[in-house]
């Protein structure tokens, strides 16, 4: 075989395009990124900006019409005691749910990252992901039945003679009520259940990235397990914990289904947004409520960054 030329003939437009992309990789990248960038920029950020804008409008209390003039009046309304209650209630719940998720997820994620091998790893992933495959609503309704006064949990407690634990918890002020299903405690439990996978998975990914030799080095240098946990594992897993907490925190901040079905009907931000934009037609106040979680998350991320949560990235 005698090659006659140094290059092979192009076989049409595709080869020429390939040539263009090869000379100018930037063009290819741009083409690749254009659709998602458009989506993000126009649809995603656009709707966010529209939301922000709405929150600076106000509602005419007389006609119920939205007045399209920029004002801070709606944000002033947000500070009314009953609205402030909603904000505080939601943030406290989100914080409690996040802490509980972190506390429960850590041992599971640690086990999965450090010790689970082969089969057990598959079992872990299945166990964590399985609840995510079933419908969210089905899970929440199921929990309503589990927690009901005449539900599975109180039946089991009766059968085992441990009702006093539930009764004791329900007798607590603020978090208690006549049954778990109608108490803030019940709302909390369902939140923790529903969002737990979102904490376990990033945590497990972060823990998996901490090399074993790092832990051995710590022990080698004289650290006890507790010291290793505090000074090495936790800081190194922190990005994962933060990632997980962003999920659990923001999901709780925005959810409006769970507190509607399980709980004492006291409003959360999501419910307020839902009611205000729907039943009450007060889009500006709904938008102002919706801006609050965004602000909270920004502050949260800023604090996390300042605390060095992302240093190990």
């Amino acid at each position: 075989m005698t090659p006659s030329t140094a290059t092979l003939p192009t076989r049409g437009i595709a080869d020429r395009l390939t040539g263009l992309f090869w000379r100018r990789p930037g063009i290819f990248l741009l083409l690749l990124l254009l659709p998602p960038l458009l989506w993000l920029g126009v649809i995603y950020l656009g709707s966010l900006l529209a939301l922000l804008l709405q929150s600076f409008y106000s509602i005419d209390e007389f006609s119920g019409m939205v007045r399209q003039e920029l004002t801070l009046k709606t944000y002033g309304e947000l500070l009314r005691p009953q609205n402030l209650d909603i904000l505080i209630r939601t943030v406290v719940m989100a914080a409690a749910v996040t802490l509980a998720c972190a506390a429960i997820a850590f041992p599971i994620a640690y086990y999965a990252a450090r010790f689970a091998k082969g089969h057990w790893k598959a079992v872990f992933y299945l166990g964590v992901m399985l609840p995510l495959w079933s419908s969210y609503l089905v899970k929440v309704y199921a929990w309503k039945l589990i927690l009901a006064k005449e539900g599975i949990l109180s039946w089991a407690a009766n059968a085992t003679g441990t009702s006093f634990i539930i009764d004791g918890l329900l007798a607590l002020p603020v978090i208690g009520s006549s049954s778990l299903s109608t108490s803030p405690l019940g709302t909390f439990m369902v939140f923790v259940y529903v969002w737990l996978p979102y904490m376990i998975l990033p945590m497990q990914a972060a823990l998996e990235r901490v090399p074993t030799s790092m832990l051995e080095a710590s022990a080698d240098l004289g650290a006890t397990r507790g010291q290793t946990f505090r000074t090495v594992i936790l800081p190194l897993a922190l990005p994962g914990v933060i990632a997980g907490s962003i999920f659990t925190f923001s999901l709780t901040l925005g959810d409006y289904i769970i507190p509607q079905i399980v709980g004492n009907s006291a409003n959360f931000i999501g419910m307020a947004v839902y009611q205000l934009q729907g039943t009450a037609g007060n889009i500006p106040l709904a938008a102002a409520f919706a801006v609050v979680p965004i602000l909270i998350m920004l502050v949260y991320l800023w604090l996390a960054k300042r605390a060095g949560a992302f240093d190990a990235l």
Partner: peptide, 20 residues
């Protein structure tokens, strides 16, 4: 005697320096 109570120290192959 667990590792942290041994008066022995190791230089690890990957150094295992704490990145944070």
């Amino acid at each position: 005697t667990p590792p942290h109570l041994r008066n022995v120290n190791t230089v690890f192959q990957d150094y295992a320096l704490f990145p944070h």
